[in-house]
């Protein structure tokens, strides 16, 4: 964000606690001091209001970054994102662009209960007019955010609270990751596991376990959910002939269902078995640590699902 704000004075950051408090998760630490209150703007608790302010500023030429303290709270700004950001270009007949970034932590965050654990990407990826990305690694968090800020459409960046402490190499300076490009983060030949954000790490852990069981799993980190890189997915499935999709959020509809539809259409002849999904269980997230872990996609559930997909169910 700092590099993009240095690069383009139309870019500003707005949200709850982003300035004086230095960010609810310290993402914007030091930015108020560097850029001043004109460009790092604390808001009252009014998501619909400041999401709308961002959209209004965007349609007349600024490039706002709007932070939701968590994506859960975007629910009260849903009308702004659904009806205004996503529709602005179409309902103005192409006259108005809406170059805006909405970002913040998404999905589970350890025992915060049903109202604070939503995986909102499924809902937003449904909406034409929006783009949705979900990085799993620090380098992609930087590169995708830069691409999002420079895009002329509304881009929603789904960060992960449980990955904020994850360490990894981040290229210095100009590092832009194009939206809509998946990456293979582990090569394999027996099965493809598609995942994104936190579940990419779950998939990698499961793949390591599977290797010890003699299964070579390829892990595709989607990075971008809309646009969705079905070319990379299809190419992987044509090599492995099987697919398991892993994501947080409920199974009904959603990104996993979308991938299952596309891959069975685009790679039907390559598939040797049904596409299976590992998702959050189809209930509101419970508080109990034990139950929450049971609800979330875990490596052991991914391992079991992969073995089932391979017809090697554990007894």
């Amino acid at each position: 964000m700092i590099e993009e704000m240095d690069r383009d004075d139309r870019v500003f950051l707005m949200g709850e606690e982003v300035g004086h408090y230095q960010g609810a998760y310290k993402v914007s630490e030091g930015m108020l001091e560097k850029f001043g209150p004109k460009r790092v703007i604390d808001t009252p608790i009014a998501e619909a209001g400041f999401a709308g302010v961002g959209i209004g500023a965007a349609i007349v030429g600024l490039r706002p970054i709007i932070e939701f303290m968590t994506w859960n709270f975007s629910a009260v700004a849903f009308d702004q994102i659904l009806n205004n950001a996503a529709k602005m270009r179409q309902m103005s007949g192409g006259q108005l662009e809406c170059p805006i970034v909405f970002r913040g932590p998404n999905a589970s965050a350890r025992q915060v209960g049903s109202q604070h654990s939503h995986a909102m990407e499924h809902i937003y990826a449904h909406v034409p007019g929006l783009k949705v990305v979900a990085p799993a690694f620090p380098a992609d968090a930087k590169g995708l955010l830069k691409a999002a800020v420079r895009d002329d459409n509304p881009v929603l960046v789904m960060e992960s609270e449980t990955l904020y402490g994850f360490k990894g190499d981040v290229p210095e300076g100009e590092h832009v990751v194009a939206l809509g490009k998946a990456q293979i983060v582990r090569a394999g030949k027996d099965i493809t596991i598609a995942a994104y954000a936190r579940t990419t790490h779950v998939a990698l852990e499961a793949a390591a376990t599977l290797e010890r069981a003699g299964v070579s799993a390829e892990v595709v980190d989607l990075r971008s959910l809309r646009p969705l890189d079905d070319n990379t997915l299809v190419a992987s499935v044509e090599r492995t002939h099987r697919l398991v999709v892993v994501h947080e959020g409920w199974p009904y509809g959603g990104v996993g269902a979308e991938i299952a539809d596309r891959v069975q259409r685009l790679a039907f002849d390559a598939l040797d078995g049904p596409i299976l999904r590992v998702t959050t269980l189809d209930v509101p997230m419970p508080y109990s640590a034990k139950l929450e872990l049971a609800c979330m996609p875990q490596p052991d559930r991914v391992v079991a699902t992969v073995l089932r997909a391979l017809g090697r169910e554990q007894s």
């Binding site: 619909a48 209001g49 400041f50 999401a51 709308g52 302010v53 961002g54 959209i55 209004g56 500023a57 965007a58 349609i59 007349v60 030429g61 600024l62 009308d79 702004q80 009806n83 205004n84 309902m91 103005s92 108005l96």
Partner: peptide
Amino acid sequence: GGYGIVGGHIPIAAGVAFA
């Protein structure tokens, strides 16, 4: 623009003035 959701454009208007 005209907007179809009652009150939904009022924060947008504030954003235009913000700009």
